[in-house]
Amino acid sequence: MASIKKVQITFDCADPERVARFWCEVLGYVVPPAPEGFASWDEYNESLPPEKRGAWFACSDPTGEGPRLFFQRVPEGKVVKNRVHLDVRVGTGLVGEERLATLQAECDRLVALGAVCDRVLLADDENESCIGMRDIEGNEFCLD
């Protein structure tokens, strides 16, 4: 049996397009073109029954290397800690103060986009520094 090489990461959320556009800014992802026959995503959504409008949105890595992110509207809000979260790898290969400064600069950028900084975990004998954050709908992620 062949091994799977591509995955899609799906987020449950209240406002799929808003959350997708946040993650585009975080990761440098792009919104795909509107479906064939439509000049824009707004035009596509207007063609749907009211209950289906804005029900989902997606974004992808423009290089094709990273996973596609899919955002689907669900009626319930987030109430507990995520069982899975993304690690945004901005400090790879960096250590000490240089790593922490890089993480903090990215944290500041993302807070300006609406993210929340939960905690800064400083390096210890086993782990390098990382920053725990939440996106604009409260989903946890780490700057690593």
Rank of each mutant, 00 (worst) to 15 (best):
F141S: 06
L69Q: 02
D135A: 06
E36S: 14
N45W: 08
R18F: 03
S129A: 13
Q104K: 15
I4L: 00
A115K: 04
K5G: 05
N45E: 09
T102S: 13
S47R: 14
V74W: 01
P50G: 12
N127D: 11
G114Q: 01
R119S: 13
P33I: 12
D118C: 13
K81M: 10
A123Q: 12
L94V: 09
D144T: 15
Q72S: 14
K81L: 09
Y44M: 10
V84Y: 13
V95C: 14
C117V: 12
A123C: 01
S3F: 08
L110E: 00
L48K: 04
G138K: 10
R119H: 15
R68I: 11
T10H: 07
R109M: 08
D12F: 04
S40P: 05
T10I: 01
D61F: 14
E98N: 07
E137I: 07
D118R: 14
G96D: 06
V79E: 10
A20P: 06
G54A: 00
D124G: 05
S3M: 05
R68F: 04
G37A: 08
E17R: 03
G77T: 15
R53V: 01
W23H: 03
D61L: 10
N45D: 09
E126Y: 05
R73N: 11
A2V: 02
D15G: 01
E43N: 11
E51D: 12
G132N: 13
C24N: 02
Q72G: 14
V30M: 04
V116I: 15
C130H: 15
R109S: 09
L86W: 12
R73S: 11
S129F: 08
L113K: 12
E97T: 15
L27Q: 01
G37I: 00
R119F: 04
V74T: 15
A115D: 07
C13H: 06
F57I: 08
D135I: 06
A55V: 09
D125P: 07
S3E: 07
R89I: 14
D12A: 01
A115S: 03
V88R: 02
L103Y: 04
Q104N: 09
L86D: 02
Q8L: 05
E97V: 13
P49A: 08
A112I: 00
L113I: 00
L48I: 00
D144N: 15
C59E: 06
L113A: 12
K81C: 07
F11V: 03
Y44G: 11
D135V: 05
E43W: 08
E17I: 02
A123F: 01
E76N: 06
I9G: 01
L86K: 04
D144L: 03
W23E: 00
W23A: 01
K6E: 05
D61S: 13
E137K: 10
Q104P: 07
G91E: 09
W41Y: 13
E46L: 12
P32A: 04
E106T: 09
G64H: 08
W23L: 09
P16M: 08
R134D: 02
L100W: 07
E17N: 05
E46M: 12
G37P: 01
E128H: 06
P62I: 14
S47Y: 02
P16N: 03
E98F: 01
D124S: 11
S3N: 03
G64N: 00
